[in-house]
Amino acid sequence: MVPVSYYVLLSAVLFTLGVVGVLTRRNALIVFMSVEMMLNSANLALVAFAQRWQSANGQILVFFVITVAAAEVAVGLALLVTIFRSKRTTDIDEINTLKG
């Protein structure tokens, strides 16, 4: 039986890697992938806690998170495609029309 704290440690490391990706990469698609990875690490922590307390509720929350993430990916990628059609780039430094 692996201690739950190991899973939490792994989840924190993966979340931090996702944060690093969001902060340092400039390709909007890779930023988006990093956001997905952060969601996944949170899911992992939730499942680990659900196993600790022997309860299915945490897993049901993860199920909802996965559903919302799927919807988010669909809309986000459609937005990226729309932005690409008008701006011809996916570099988030180039997409600065709203910048004051």
């Binding site: 692996v2 899973y7 792994l10 698609l29 988006f32 992938m33 997905e36 996944n40 899911n43 992992l44 499942v47 680990a48 659900a50 196993q51 897993q59 993860v62 199920f63 996965i66 559903t67 993430a69 799927a70 990916v73 669909a74 990628l77 990226l80 495609v81």
Partner: peptide, 29 residues
């Protein structure tokens, strides 16, 4: 890891939704 945590349902959902659908969507875009 979900399988190790005794979550077989989430194992299947993770493979189908994330590894299947979302990755394919990313690759397409």
């Amino acid at each position: 890891l979900y399988l190790l945590l005794r979550a077989p349902f989430l194992f299947a959902v993770q493979l189908i939704v994330y590894a299947g659908a979302i990755i394919v969507l990313f690759l397409f875009v």
